[in-house]
Design a protein around this nucleic acid. Sequence first.
DNA 1: GCCGAGCATGATAGCGTTCTCAGCTTCTCC
DNA 2: GGAGAAGCTGAGAACGCTATCATGCTCGGC
Lengths: 329, 329
Amino acid sequence: MTVTVRDVARAAGVSQATAARVLGEYGYASDEARVRVHASARELGYTPNGVARALVSRATQTIGLVVGDIENPFFAAVARGLSDVVERQGYTVLLANADEDPERERRAMLALRSRRVDGMVVVPAPGAAREAFLDGPPLVQLDRAVRGAATDAVMVHNAAGAVSAVDHLLALGHTRIGMVTDSPQISSSAERIAGYRRALRAKGLLDESLISVGGSSQADGLVAARALLDRQDRPTAIFTANNFMTHGALLAARELQVRIPRDLALVGFDDLDWTTLVDPPLTVISQPVGDLGRVAGERLLARIGGEDGPPRRVRLATRLIVRGSCGAP
Amino acid sequence: MTVTVRDVARAAGVSQATAARVLGEYGYASDEARVRVHASARELGYTPNGVARALVSRATQTIGLVVGDIENPFFAAVARGLSDVVERQGYTVLLANADEDPERERRAMLALRSRRVDGMVVVPAPGAAREAFLDGPPLVQLDRAVRGAATDAVMVHNAAGAVSAVDHLLALGHTRIGMVTDSPQISSSAERIAGYRRALRAKGLLDESLISVGGSSQADGLVAARALLDRQDRPTAIFTANNFMTHGALLAARELQVRIPRDLALVGFDDLDWTTLVDPPLTVISQPVGDLGRVAGERLLARIGGEDGPPRRVRLATRLIVRGSCGAP
DNA sequence: GCCGAGCATGATAGCGTTCTCAGCTTCTCC
DNA sequence: GGAGAAGCTGAGAACGCTATCATGCTCGGC
C-alpha cells in the first residue's frame, strides 16, 4: 500500500525519474525500461498516490455535491445523473448532506473546498447567503438559484410546470384550487408559487388563503395539507409542489377521509416510483431528474475544462403526466 | 484560494513555521504572534490545503462508499446513516456506484484507493472476487459478505427475517408460498432463501419450483413475479426478498388482475415510504436501514482509529410489520 | 571524422503541509 | 548570580508525485 514510485524504480533498477516517466506516460523511456518498470510495478502492487499527484497537479479529480438529504429520491436521482457523467471522465463525487440548513451547507462547502474539489454542484439551502457562492472553485447551482450568486445553474421550468398543473385542473372545471408548497425561500418553490398564481389570476380565481406552506418533509406536508382540507370551504383540487408535499397530502386526505379523485383532485410536482402504485395513480408534473444531474455535471466539467464567459442558466422542461388523480369537481 | 501558510506568515511578519504552528494549533507561539497570524489568515482568506495536509499526515479524512446504485432507497438510507456518523468526526464520504457489477466495483474501489480514502464501506456486487477485499485500507462490508473476505461486516438477520415472513404466512393458513428473490450470489439473498426454505421445510411444504429469481430492478421483479402468478397452480402467498421484487410483484399482480390480499398475500423484505400508501398497505419485514449505515460507520471509524482484532460481524434485527397485504387463503 | 538531432537517463526543484531541532531569550529558584 | 527550565522562533526535512534540465549516448549525413 505504501509502495511508491521510488520503490518501483529501485526494484526495476532505474532512477525514480525514469520510473515516474513510464508510469506517468510522459517523456522518453526505452522499451526495456518500460517493461521492467511495469513489471515491478505490477509485482509490488503499486497504486499511484492520488494525494501526491493532486498536490502537484493542482487537480483532485474530485467534484463535490451538496444536497439537502441524499435520502430524498429527487436528490438521489440527481446524484446518480451527476456521478454517471463525471465518473466517465475519471472524477469521483464527494457527497455532503446539508439538511436544508444554510449553516450546515456552509460548513459542507468549506469541507469540500479544503479538500480541494475541482468543482462543486450545490442545491442551495433556503436562506443560503450569496457570499458563500462567490469565490472558490467552479460551482453550479442545481434546482434552485440564490439571488445574486452569479454562477452557472441548472433548473427546470418551474413556473411553466406549475402553470400546466393548474391549467390541467382548471380545464377539468375546478375553480377552488389549493397549493401545498415548500418554503418560498427556495427559488424553485417561489417559481412554482408564481406559476400557480399567474395561472389562477388569469381566470380571476386566485385566493391567497389557499396557499399552504409546508416544508421539506412528509410531516410538514401532512400538516400543511390538513390545514387546507380541514376548512369548511376546502378546495376541490390541490397542487402539491414537491414529492414530500404530495406524500403528505395523500396522508391528510386519508386521515380526513377525503377521497381522491371523487372529493379532491391532486396534481403533484415531481414523479416518483410509487406514483403509479397508489390508487388512483397520481397525475404529476414530471421533472427530468437524472438530466438535471447530468447537465449540471456537463456544465461543471466544461468550466473545469476552462470554459469562460458569463454564468449560464439552463432550464429543463417538465412534463404533465395525466393519470387518475384528477376528477372533475 | 491559493493563499498558503507561507503567504499568511509573510503578511504576519513571522516565519512559515510559526504561522503553521498557530494555524495548526501545536507547539509554542506567543500571544502576539497568534493574534497577528490569525488576523492575516482571516484577511487573506486562508483555507488550509487538505491535499497537502493529507500527504504528510497520511490521512485524507475521507471515507469511500461503494453501493450498487444510490437511487435505490435502501442504499440512499445507508449512505445517509453512514455520512451522519462519519461527518460528525470530520470525515467526508466519497461516493461510487457499481451497478451491481463486480468489474465496475473493482474499478470504483481502485479509484477510491488511489484517492487514499482512510477506509471504505462496500456493498459487494454479486460475484465480487474476494481478492479485492484483502488488502488496502480498513474496509467494512455492508448488507452482504463475500465468501473468504475476512473483513468487518454489518448485516441484518436475513434468515430470521425470512423465517418470520414465511411463518406469518403459514400462521394465516397459507400452504403454497412462493418467493421472488434477487440472485443467490448475493449473500443476503441467499440467506433469505435459506430462511424461506427452512421455514417451509419444517412444515413439509417446501416446493423449490416456487422460488423465482429476479434481480435488482423492478423489471426483473415483474418478470419473476409474473412467472409465479401465471401458473395454473399459482401460490396463494408470495414473499418478495427486496424492494424491487416487491414493486415488481405489485405490478405483476395488477397486470394479471390478481387482487391483494383476496387472491394473493404478500410480504416484502425492506420497508419503504410508499408501503403505507398503497392499497392495501403492505406487510413487510422492515430493516433498520439507517442503522446499517451508522453501525458500519462506527465499525470503520474504530478500525481507522487503530482497533485491532479479528473481523467482526454485526447482525441487526429485522422486524415484521403487519399491515394489510396478507389475507387468509 | 565531425556535428547536430534525437533518444534515454538521473538530478533536482517544487507542490503546501506537518513536525523535529537547534538556538535564543526570558523566567524561576536556590 | 548562575543554572536550569520554559517559552518562542526559524531553518529545514520529509510526504510522493510531476516536470524541467543537463548530461550523456547513439545515430545519420556530409
